[in-house]
Design a protein around this nucleic acid. Structure first.
Lengths: 207, 207
DNA sequence: GCTCCGTCTTGACACTTGTCAAGAGAAACC
DNA sequence: GGTTTCTCTTGACAAGTGTCAAGACGGAGC
């Protein structure tokens, strides 16, 4: 049974270690999930790409779904701050657009498997009720992330934002997804195209 | 073995029947695929929801993938003309936007399972090379479909389109997908929100 | 009537899946 | 040092998967 830490005095080390193991497992799981997708990544395969055996998963997680949700949450928690520097460091609206577009292409180049995994999970949530809450919550944090960029852009540009957060996120996410699709399909121009698209679209979001 | 129709004189009936059966199977498959998704819809389940047995699939299709691709192509072929009446019947730009938005919400209301299946397949194509060509091709016809709407809108509005087809499709598809997600998640306002969003976004696409 | 061919069903195959129980090994605690 | 608790491995289970071979059924052609 997993440690509950209720019978311990002051020490929280075992629970720390417990959480640390969960993170380790999550990290391993992410590589496999990003490579194979949600449906095809088996627990045995996930465990193979880690230092553990396949049975350990059920010691730290109730079932596969909990592991997957935990893993994606674990990843996305790190990622929602990706554009914070874009927001804080840009001094003009144009700079911000350039920095934003650069970050977007960078993350596609360097973390494409993670992104397709996210889209996989989000799509599966349309079939699986159990996934919905987690996906909804993560999607909301992504929308907030985009919203911070867009409002800062409008601020630097001296004009008010003319769309609501849902529109801004939906639009940019659509372009991002399309780029990811092209990039993974080997279309060389995909990333450059995204830069141009972002330059086109951002001005449309302010009045 | 499947009939090749090369040894027949003029009659094409057997091949007709062969293709007809493929369509029937595709139609059955679509219900199951739309309900369970690509990964979880087994051939036995697909056959159960049809008038045939599970073995018949391999008589008409080489494998599961071919059936799935055929089915989605079969469905999408009917759907790319969905907005043709919007294009041809609208007399003002505002009318077009209203008619377009109405059709968008209508298809979500009536064919949500088909749409989530499409997104499922498109996402799986990021993992499976074998899916890529078919997905790319279908996605392109969808982009063309959207492009016809957007250019007609610009024409009626008397202003030139200010974005390229990829931007228009990516943006609107992003909003559509977000709405579908919300709709399937039980968010009552999703459809109304889409209408408002389309009214907001369409004017942004013309100079 | 008999044969052939298109059509479809049945049943099996090899394999993978998530899950979990039994127990080994190590660490912590008295 | 002995005992309890945590950690992890091993091996099995039942269920489900795509695939395909063998054969049944029925109609068309001669």
């Amino acid at each position: 049974m997993a440690p509950t830490n209720t019978s311990r005095r002051g020490a929280v080390r075992p629970v720390d270690k417990y959480d640390q193991r969960r993170d380790e497992l999550a990290e391993s799981a992410l590589t496999t999930l990003g490579a194979m997708g949600y449906a095809r990544a088996s627990l045995r395969e996930i465990a193979n790409n880690s230092t553990f055996s396949h049975g350990v998963v059920h010691y730290y997680f109730q079932d596969k779904l909990e592991l997957v949700i935990y893993s994606v949450r674990y990843y996305k928690a790190r990622c929602v701050t990706r554009y914070d520097s874009v927001v804080s460091d840009s001094t003009t609206a144009d700079d911000l657009v350039d920095a934003f577009a650069a970050k977007l292409t960078e993350t596609i180049r360097e973390e494409a498997p993670m992104h397709r995994l996210w889209y996989d999970l989000r799509t599966q949530s349309m079939f699986e009720d159990q996934l919905r809450d987690a996906v909804t919550e993560i999607d909301h944090t992504l929308q907030d992330m985009i919203w911070r960029v867009v409002t800062r852009y409008a601020e630097l540009d001296g004009r008010p934002v003319s769309v609501d957060p849902g529109v801004a996120y939906g639009m940019l996410d659509g372009l991002f997804q399309q780029t990811l699709l092209g990039y993974l399909g080997g279309r060389q121009t995909a990333l450059d195209s995204l830069v141009a698209q972002v330059r086109t679209v951002m001005p449309l979001l302010v009045a």
